[in-house]
Design a protein around this nucleic acid. Structure first.
Lengths: 173, 173
DNA sequence: CTCTCCCTACCAGGCGATAGATAGGAGCGA
DNA sequence: TCGCTCCTATCTATCGCCTGGTAGGGAGAG
């Protein structure tokens, strides 16, 4: 794995654990095994790094759910994608974390975060019944519940709370 | 208003906007109009301040929903309480924010955050139909959707997304 | 005389970011 | 093939600023 990729992976893990202000370039350097000046060589500024991180996360997320057929299967695919966050070290959704913090973040990061939700809302609503407006509303409600489920599971320190929070997710719309 | 209360109010606003690591004692001092050493006089450490903040928030929140009768009215009371966050300067629920960040927070803060969700889950589930286990599951799902709705509204920069996300909240259980 | 509250003046350490040096290759002309 | 240049990645060393937190003093109130 290239150094830049290692830095991205370390940064993603740290943002998802503790947020934008919860890590430093020195933390990343230590994770990767280089010095902080070398991290700046690959990513000049923190805001550029995290904005890139959010964009890459969005691409990866969309790929993970792209092939899910319309209907309940697509909802299930989203549920699985969110649950995977928890399984890997009790992490938040990257953009859920950034969305919560968004009022204290640099604009490029806010913009990428917004794009994540716009894209997921659009893709998820395409797989739902009803007219476009109604399907969009359902998609927003589903995503809200999934993001919130991650928060509750983390706050309660109980991963099963995620499953409880999204029980019968596909029937709730 | 006493100085200590002003500090608490300023801290709450800042945590809800940008999270635990998104503000400093000097920020609070400037908000209140004193020096940072004076903030330390009232609240010796940051973790103690935020832990107290979370406890006070929980009390205030519980009071706001305490009188709601069981059934749909109680769900509506929770919805109103969460919506009030957004109306006041697009803020997160304090404990939703702390819950998201919880993996990077000092233990006393994590503990108070957990208590908020335990208490709201218990109180909300008391007002729902079904046996205790089922009512608890419903309460967790409702709170998840409310917390997530705040995140989406902030990330999208569109307050109406909150209302969309919680549309027919009482019918969804 | 003491207690409360706020002040000035600090401290050690962490922050994002920069400057400049060094080592190792890759490409290329003679 | 030798020697030169350029590029990339990393280093050491440092910058100015901010961080949470502390020490000690002064002013006013009971």
């Amino acid at each position: 794995m290239k150094t830049a990729e290692k830095i991205m992976a370390a940064a993603e893990r740290r943002v998802r654990a503790a947020g934008y202000n919860g890590f430093s370039f020195r933390d990343l350097a230590e994770d990767v095994g280089i010095k902080s000046a070398s991290v700046h060589h690959h990513f000049p500024t923190k805001e550029a790094l995290v904005a890139k991180l959010a964009a890459a996360y969005t691409e990866r997320f969309m790929e993970a759910v792209a092939e899910a057929p319309a209907g309940a299967a697509r909802i299930a695919a989203y549920q699985r994608a969110f649950r995977a966050s928890l399984e890997a070290d009790r992490q938040m959704c990257l953009c859920g974390m950034l969305g919560a913090e968004s009022m204290g973040l640099p604009q490029p990061v806010v913009l990428e975060t917004k794009r994540f939700f716009e894209r997921t809302i659009e893709h998820l609503s395409e797989g739902l019944d009803g007219d476009a407006t109604n399907a969009r509303a359902k998609a927003i409600a589903l995503l809200a519940r999934l993001e919130g489920a991650l928060i509750l599971a983390r706050a309660l320190g109980d991963l099963s709370a995620f499953d409880t929070a999204v029980r019968d997710l596909e029937k709730s719309i």
